[in-house]
Structures are given as structure tokens and as C-alpha cells.
Write a protein that binds this DNA or RNA. Structure first.
Length: 469
RNA sequence: GGCGGCAUAGCCAAGUGGUAAGGCAGAGGACUGCAAAUCCUUUAUCCCCAGUUCGAAUCUGGGUGCCGCCUCCA
């Protein structure tokens, strides 16, 4: 069974068939690097990271491009406020972006282009639009002429008239139509600028994505993703610019993630109701945040709360404990030949099939997680019901949980904290000896000591297990 | 005004015609020196009304409530 995706262009679920067999071109709108990103911004980063990983797991080669917007009003304002250049601001927050995204386990894109490094492509795209009569120059500002592009509104599913009514845009009399948008903005005092055929200036809001998408992935790409608030006007405008210039279809599948809500409201910088990803990571490990993001379907709104994060942490720890138990059994239990009649291979293959079926169904991570936890219970039961370990059990179990790790990035690799394990092992051995001689006071004292070191002990029939908190 | 989304147990959340996945929390039990982990049992008239159907959380119509986009925003 193949992957199906809900395409916002058609508003239906469609089988996903890449333009070129075996290869996927995927562009995801990235951050404007004027500040730390918040946990709501992190949703698309994580969720589309998982979609990308899943497609790679299925054997597709994914060319995944995510841009950095490093020149716009917010960049200029923030740089001015900080008394630094826009370049310096961008350098700083690109580094901060990577620090947080890496910490969240988000794979780095194939390409991460910056707008300021693609002026040639941007200008040449605008030029093509001007030449074809889709754009016009007014005093050094260049606007896209929406009326010259009959299918404007394909993504919004609205006509120009409908879009106009009720819109609270201040009307710029120099524009031919209120919805005409800037491709190029003439330089203002104190702003960074680049030379162009229309004079010094800088690119408008939307043009960079079209230009960079076309440069790295070609005129027509398979998938373009972003938050649902980008549907209009950002993505609508991208379509208009690109298709007006090339005459070809720009994006085959448009996908948008739902918002992260907080107190039932959209989390956003302008509302001020946000929590930075950095701050969230100080309180909860990445595995909990990833699990939280994957616990709902990507298109649904997802309500953020401390409690939800706590619940996700509890859940992902259950998965982690299961894998630790499995490893402990691997290292300490007697291996025996498989019992005739017990077919672990087909049990885990069935889980794998159900997991991939859920993921194939418009990337239903919540349903896929349900399957993961059924598999967890199976493993826990198996380990409880016997004291040895069949050789036939590990390979299919490892394959299944390896797939979960590869695709979802949970539970994630345990970070080394530099503690010397030999000290821990010595203490555990000492405690074990104390327990054998029924000196429980001493044993508990050692447990407390280890606990203070962040080490949790579990006494099991297979011996003492330990893990870091 | 136009376009769109959502409403499932205490909480989070799957499920698009055949009598409700999974997780968190709670209760009871098993195991246990203690603890932890784990296992078992247990918790849902699927927002309301009407309709279609042998049968609806799932389809249709009408409500109610919440949210979003149309303006910078993932």
C-alpha cells in the first residue's frame, strides 16, 4: 500500500506519486531568523521531519529544502533594536535555530538556502514576471499583478472578489489591485539593499521561496509544506509567481499542519502566548516533545499544555523502559531455540504492517503510535512470562522498534552525560552484596546515593537494572 | 461578509456504516525486603435535534459551542 496525502490544492486525500520515481522533491517553509522559535513553530519542523524520515524509510530519496528568511521587516526592526546588522542577527539566530532543532532530533535538510544569498535568482525571477506582463514597477517597487493570473486564489479557494471583501488591508493607491503584492521593495533609508534593474532595494515577502524552490528542486516540485496560516497569502502568492513565470505547475502536493494552541488560542509571537522551544527543552526532553507532536494528526489543531507534555513524557518512558528491558534480557538471559509454533516474525510483521498502513494514511502518526504501544505490551508480556529468551524473538522485535526509532526519532538515543559508569557499577555491586546479607539499611543508603547521582535502580529476576533519570 | 477546521472517557487522542485504538491519570489485584518497572481487571448513552439505513461516532439536514484564515505569523 502506498502513501496517501491530503492535498490542500484539491482538498482531498490523494495517492502520493512522486514526479520522478524513487525521488521526492520537498520544500518546507523555514524560519525567519530574528528570534528563537517557539514550540508552535516547532510543530512543522518535527512533523515534516517525520514525514521526510518516513519517505526515506520507504526507500525514497528525499531532496528536502528548508529555507532561512534572513531579510524582511522583522529582521530589520530587530537588528536596529539590538544595534547590530541584519547579517549579524541572521548568523546568530541561524546558529540558535540549529541548536534547538538539533536538540529536538530534527534531521538537517538537504539544503538550507538563505534569501540574501539568492538575490540573482530572485531578481531574475522578478524580471521574467515583468517581461511577461505579470508585474509592474512603480517608483522602484515591483508588484505582482494578480489580475494577470486568472487562477489566483486556487489555494484559498476564493475568487479575487471574495478575497477582497472584508479584507482590512490599507489600500495603496499605486497598486492596480488591492491584492497585488510586492516582489521588490525600493530601498528605504537605513535598510540593507541590493542593486536591481529597478534600483536599490530588497525582495518582497514571498518571492524567495519560489526562487529557491525552483533553483534547488526544479520548476515543479512534489511537496511544499508549512503551517496552515501560510496557505494564504504566502503560498497562494508563491504559486502565482512561479506559475506565471514558468507556465508550469509549481507544486503537486500542498500540505499544511494545524496550529499548536495554548488555552484554545493559536500560539503566536504577536499574541505573546508562546513558549520557546528552548524553554520547553529545559523542562522536558526532546523525546517527550516529539511524542507530543506526533500524538495528534498533523492537520488537527493540537492543544499545548504542561500536562500534555507530562503525559507524553510518561508514554515515551514506557516505550523506553520496554526497550531497556529488552536490552537487559538480551545481555543477561539465557538464549534458547525458538519454541515451535510461536511465530514472532509474523507477530511483529503484523505490527509493522499496521504501523506503515497508519503512516500511509495521510501520515497518521497518532494511529501509528497506537500500534507501537501494542507492540510494547507484547514485549513486556513476553519478558514477564518467561525467564529465557528465544533466539527468534530479538530480530523481529529489533526490526520493529528500529523502524519506530528511524521514522519517529523516539525514544531517541540516550545522551551521554559523561559520568563514569564504573563508579555506578561498583556501587550497585556493593548494594547487591548488602542485600544478599540482608543489610537493607546499607542497601537503601546506596540506592539513595545513586538516586542523587541521577541513577534509578530496578531489582528484577534477571538482576539489577539501572538507568539514568 | 467569504473560506475553512474542530466537538469521542477525569485529561490527551485515533477511528468516515457493523455496537468505540493507544497513552496519561485513578481504583482494585499480582509480583516485591523496600522501591521501581511490569502484568491483569476496571472507567465512554461518541455536543444537541431530526432524517437516511437492517445497522451511524461515522452519511444528510438543522442547531449549539469553540477555533482559524482573508493583515506579519508554522
Amino acid at each position: 500500500m502506498g502513501l496517501t496525502l491530503y492535498n490542500d490544492l484539491t482538498r482531498t486525500k490523494e495517492p502520493f506519486v512522486p514526479l520522478n520515481e524513487g525521488r521526492v522533491t520537498f520544500y518546507s517553509c523555514g524560519p525567519t531568523v530574528y528570534d528563537y522559535f517557539h514550540i508552535g513553530n516547532a510543530r512543522p519542523f518535527i512533523v515534516f521531519d517525520v514525514l521526510r524520515r518516513y519517505m526515506e524509510f520507504k526507500g525514497l530519496q528525499v531532496d528536502f529544502v528548508q529555507n532561512f528568511t534572513d531579510i524582511d521587516d522583522k529582521m530589520i526592526n530587530r537588528a536596529n533594536r539590538e544595534g547590530i546588522t541584519v547579517d549579524q542577527l541572521a548568523d546568530r539566530f541561524i546558529a540558535e535555530y540549529y541548536r534547538d532543532a538539533d536538540a529536538l532530533g530534527v534531521k538537517r535538510p538537504t539544503h538550507s538556502p538563505k534569501a540574501t544569498e539568492h538575490m540573482a535568482e530572485i531578481i531574475s525571477l522578478i524580471q521574467r514576471l515583468v517581461e511577461k506582463g505579470h508585474a509592474y514597477n512603480v517608483d522602484g517597487d515591483v508588484y505582482f499583478d494578480v489580475e494577470s493570473f486568472p487562477s489566483y486564489g486556487v489555494l484559498a479557494k476564493q475568487s479575487l472578489d471574495e478575497l477582497q471583501s472584508g479584507a482590512r488591508i490599507e489600500i495603496d493607491e499605486r497598486k492596480r489591485h488591492p491584492l497585488d503584492f510586492a516582489l521588490w521593495k525600493a530601498r528605504k533609508e537605513g535598510e540593507p539593499s541590493w542593486p536591481s534593474p529597478w534600483g536599490e532595494g530588497r525582495p518582497g515577502w514571498h518571492i524567495e521561496c519560489s526562487a529557491m524552490s525552483m533553483k534547488y528542486l526544479g520548476d515543479t516540485i512534489d511537496i511544499h509544506s508549512g503551517g496552515t496560516d501560510l496557505t494564504f497569502p504566502h503560498h497562494e502568492n508563491e504559486v502565482a509567481q512561479a506559475e506565471a513565470a514558468t507556465g508550469k505547475k509549481f507544486v503537486r502536493y500542498w500540505i499544511h499542519n494545524g496550529y499548536l494552541l495554548i488555552d484554545k488560542e493559536k500560539m503566536s509571537k504577536s499574541l505573546g502566548n508562546f513558549l520557546t522551544a528552548r524553554a520547553a527543552l529545559e523542562q522536558y526532553p526532546a523525546k517527550a516533545i516529539r511524542h507530543f507532536m506526533l500524538s495528534a494528526h498533523y492537520r488537527s489543531p493540537l492543544n499545548f499544555s504542561e500536562d500534555s507534555l507530562r503525559q507524553s513524557l510518561g508514554a515515551v518512558e514506557r516505550l523506553e523502559n520496554c526497550l531497556l528491558d529488552l536490552d537487559h534480557a538480551r545481555n543477561h538471559r539465557k538464549r534458547v531455540d525458538g519454541t515451535p509454533g510461536s511465530d514472532h516474525e509474523s507477530v511483529f510483521r503484523s505490527y509493522e504492517d499496521r504501523f506503515t498502513a497508519a503512516m500511509d494514511d495521510d501520515f497518521n502518526t497518532a494511529a501509528a503510535l497506537g500500534v507501537v504501544y501494542e507492540a510494547v505490551r507484547t514485549v513486556n508480556n513476553y519478558l514477564k512470562e518467561r525467564s529465557d529468551l528465544e533466539e527468534s524473538f530479538l530480530p523481529p522485535a529489533d526490526r520493529f522498534f528500529g523502524m519506530v526509532e528511524t521514522v519517529m526519532g523516539i525514544p531517541g538515543r540516550v545522551e551521554e552525560d559523561g559520568t563514569d559508569d564504573s563508579r555506578i557499577r561498583d556501587l550497585i555491586a556493593e548494594r547487591d552484596a548488602a542485600r544478599k546479607s540482608r543489610d537493607f539499611k546499607r542497601a537503601d543508603a546506596i540506592r539513595d546515593e545513586l538516586s542523587a547521582m541521577g541513577v534509578v535502580l530496578e531489582d528484577t529476576p534477571d538482576g539489577v537494572k539501572w538507568r539514568r533519570k
